[in-house]
């Protein structure tokens, strides 16, 4: 995928921000996709690996984000999150490349001002909600509001 000049400028800006707030995340190639990948710790020190697919039409689309570690990601009942498919209560949008795809932004609420940093902050919140679900058995909806 060849990035346009405007996209290259934007990517540079994105990486400048990420290097400050998420220095553990790196640019990787997955198949033909450019991705941002790396580890995140939750507040109780659980480790997750996330992958953000940089949209080819960046910055006009919501990036897809999956959890690649642990694999599989399990819920309170020990059930693989992939088995939920698209689920409003679990804030899931199905699977991609065999990993659960999580909901961060509604497409109609997306705008060019949303940086990968903001998406990754939502990923952190999502992981905290998952931890809450695993700890209590409450659905993720209980911890995480839907975007209006």
């Amino acid at each position: 995928m060849a990035w346009t000049y405007e996209q290259q400028v934007r990517l540079q800006k994105e990486f400048d921000i990420l290097s400050q707030y998420f220095p553990n995340l790196n640019l990787v190639k997955v198949g033909t996709n450019d991705c941002i990948e790396g580890y995140m710790y939750t507040n109780d020190r659980s480790l997750y690996k996330i992958r953000l697919y940089i949209p080819t039409d960046m910055p006009y689309s919501v990036p897809e984000v999956v959890i690649t570690y642990p694999n599989p990601v399990k819920d309170f009942y020990g059930k693989d999150l992939n088995s939920y498919g698209a689920s409003a209560t679990m804030h899931l949008l199905g699977s991609k490349d065999g990993y659960p795809k999580i909901c961060t932004y509604k497409a109609e609420r997306w705008n060019s001002n949303v940086t990968f940093y903001k998406v990754l902050i939502k990923v952190r919140l999502w992981l905290e909600a998952l931890e809450g679900h695993i700890r209590t058995g409450q659905q993720m909806d209980y911890f995480l509001q839907h975007q209006i």
Binding site: E6, D57, P59, Y60, S61, A107, E108, W110, N111, S112
Partner: peptide, 14 residues
């Protein structure tokens, strides 16, 4: 749709 309008906005600026 907004997706196209954000793109057209960038074209106008470009």
């Amino acid at each position: 749709n907004d997706k196209s309008r954000f793109f057209l906005n960038d074209l106008a600026l470009k």
